[in-house]
Structures are given as structure tokens and as C-alpha cells.
């Protein structure tokens, strides 16, 4: 008996006693039925509960709250004041910095998102080819950057991109005779974004990379045999015809993670405020308004716009990679 039939049967059973007021009958019944169903599947709900409680408390409620706040003026110290769409009007019409932040974030996301996504996938695939015994070492080595704290990372990369001739990169280029005086990597507006992107790529092998590694491990061995019988010879063909379809769920999960993380990029190795705002991202713009200016209403409006952007692109990812059933 399938789930559906079972549910239908139960519905029939509970429908038995007739109620006098038909209008409220369904509502009451439905509610009672839901409770009943939940009770029947209490184990599953119990298992889901920890996540849902956290999700609702720390993600859903703040999101709704902040959507509400985005229609107000609120400086934290005084009560919020209703201002209608003023925040959005200012955001789209008058805030020149937002455009700059938007461009920066988009540049960053467009490059870091796909590149780190593909990089993660291919590195995970390469590692999958490595013998079992030493694989964990490789995984650890590639995953380590994601484990390092932001501060440690900043220190390491600041030395690399140090503005003077003792910076590793400057020193290397000077020694090779490619440049004649040190480049101000973290001061010159032309270099800031590329530097940020390079650092971001280096540390981007994080959760999605682990998901891929796990995904590859989860591929049924027999499928390779079957593929071999069907005439698959090269490893690349295996990747294309076996691994990619089999790791679809991980691909989707990673896509969502990557998009969210690259749109919500905030503090990078270039300190905020950066020269000519060349490292200003939407997140930094947001925290600028909430932290420095105490305009939480406006910051909420930015947050809402950012969430809508992320949601929209998330939908696209689902469309492209989601299971088509």
C-alpha cells in the first residue's frame, strides 16, 4: 500500500462522524487531521524539529522581521517610524554607492561562483581518482583553507600582496624583472577586485567541495561496470555519463551554497572602507548603514533586495539542475 492510499484511507475513516456546521467543519477537521497525522509520524517530526526550530528562530523570523522593518525608519534607539516605500525609492533612485556595491558584488559573484563551483567539482573528481589510503590527506590539504580563520587568512595574504617590495608577489615580479617598482596591490583601485577574487577562489573549496567528495564516494560501483559494458572507456566519459548524473543532488546543493556565499560576501582582505569604495560589497554597504549610520530600516531594505536576488538565482539553479520529475 502506498503512502497516498494509506492517507486516503485514514481520511475516509476520520470523515465518518458528520458535523452540523458544514462551514467550519472542514477547517476543524483538517486541523484535527493534521494534528493526528503529525502524531502518527511523530518520530519524523521529532527528527526534523531541531532544524526547524533553529531555522524558524534564526532565519525565517528575522527575514520577515527585517522585511517589515524595511518599510520603516529605525535608528535602534528610538521606536521604528513607518515610512512606506521611501527606503526602496532611495535605494533604487538616489544611492549611488549601492550601484557601486551591486556592481562589485555581481562581478565577484559571477566570477567566484561558477569558477569555484567548477574548481570544486573537478578537484573532487581528481581526488576521487586517488587511491583510497591517501585520499583523506588530499581532502584535508584542499579543505584546509576553508578551515583557516579569516584573520589568519588576511595575515597570510596581506604578506603575499603587501604593497612594498618585500611583499612576496611584488618581490617575485621585481626579481623576474617584470615590474620596476612595487605595485600597490591593496591601494590601487585597478588591482583590488582581482586580488579579492583570487583570494576568494583559494579559500572557496569549502562545504561544496566536501559534498562533492562525498557524492563521488556515493556513486554505485556497479554503474561503472555497466558503463564499461556499454562501451565507456575513458575516465572523462565515466565522469560525463555516470558521475555527473549520479551526483546531481550534490551539484544542486553546492550551487545554492555557492550562490548564497558569493552574494553575501562582506569583509574581504581589503579593509573597509577601501580606496574609492572599490571593495564595497552589498553586505558591507548594508553593515555600513546598520552599524555606522544606525539606519536599520534602510539596511533592512538592502537586505530584502539581496535576499530576493539570492532567491531568484537559487530558483534558476533549481530549474537547471533540479530533478525533473
Amino acid at each position: 500500500m502506498s503512502n497516498k492510499e494509506e492517507r486516503n484511507n485514514k481520511k475516509k475513516n476520520t470523515d465518518m462522524p458528520a458535523a452540523p456546521k458544514k462551514r467550519f467543519f472542514n477547517v476543524e477537521k483538517r486541523f484535527g487531521y493534521t494534528i493526528h497525522e503529525m502524531w502518527t509520524h511523530k518520530m519524523s517530526y521529532g527528527l526534523m524539529a531541531p532544524f526547524f526550530i533553529l531555522f524558524i528562530t534564526f532565519s525565517l523570523i528575522p527575514l520577515l522581521w527585517s522585511t517589515g522593518l524595511s518599510f520603516t525608519y529605525w535608528n535602534i534607539f528610538e521606536s521604528p517610524r513607518w515610512t512606506g516605500l521611501n527606503n526602496y525609492v532611495y535605494l533604487f533612485v538616489d544611492d549611488s554607492l549601492f550601484l557601486k556595491a551591486f556592481t562589485n558584488t555581481l562581478t565577484y559573484a559571477v566570477i567566484v561562483g561558477p569558477v569555484s563551483y567548477l574548481m570544486s567539482y573537478f578537484i573532487a573528481w581528481f581526488i576521487n581518482q586517488v587511491p583510497n589510503k591517501i585520499r583523506p590527506l588530499y581532502v584535508l590539504a584542499f579543505y584546509a583553507p576553508a578551515l583557516t580563520s579569516a584573520i589568519a587568512m588576511q595575515v597570510v595574504w596581506s604578506v603575499m600582496f603587501s604593497n612594498d617590495s618585500t611583499g612576496y608577489l611584488n618581490s617575485l615580479l621585481l626579481n623576474l624583472g617584470l615590474i620596476y617598482e612595487p605595485i600597490q596591490w591593496l591601494q590601487d583601485v585597478n588591482y583590488i577586485m582581482p586580488v579579492i577574487i583570487i583570494v576568494a577562489l583559494w579559500s572557496s573549496l569549502s562545504t561544496q567541495f566536501l559534498a562533492f567528495v562525498a557524492g563521488f564516494r556515493g556513486v554505485d560501483r556497479e554503474l561503472y561496470d555497466a558503463a564499461a559494458v556499454d562501451g565507456v572507456t575513458s575516465r572523462f566519459q565515466k565522469l560525463l555519463y555516470v558521475d555527473v548524473p549520479q551526483t546531481m543532488p550534490q551539484l544542486l546543493f553546492s550551487a545554492v551554497i555557492t550562490i548564497t556565499s558569493s552574494f553575501t560576501v562582506g569583509q574581504t582582505i581589503v579593509a573597509h572602507p577601501s580606496p574609492e569604495d572599490s571593495a564595497l560589497t552589498i553586505m558591507l554597504h548594508l553593515s555600513d548603514y546598520s552599524g555606522t549610520r544606525f539606519e536599520v530600516g534602510y539596511a533592512s531594505a538592502i537586505a530584502v533586495v539581496l535576499s530576493v536576488m539570492i532567491l531568484g538565482i537559487g530558483r534558476v539553479a533549481f530549474k537547471v539542475l533540479g530533478e525533473k520529475e
Binding site: 603587501s162 604593497n163 612594498d164 617590495s165 618585500t166 621585481l174 626579481n175 612595487p182
Partner: peptide, 11 residues
């Protein structure tokens, strides 16, 4: 001397 005080030498 560079801006941070290192010496530059023609190697």
C-alpha cells in the same frame, strides 16, 4: 631603500 625599508640590489 623601498618604501618599507628593504634594500634593493641589482642581483
Amino acid at each position: 631603500r623601498t618604501s618599507s625599508g628593504g634594500y634593493t640590489v641589482d642581483t
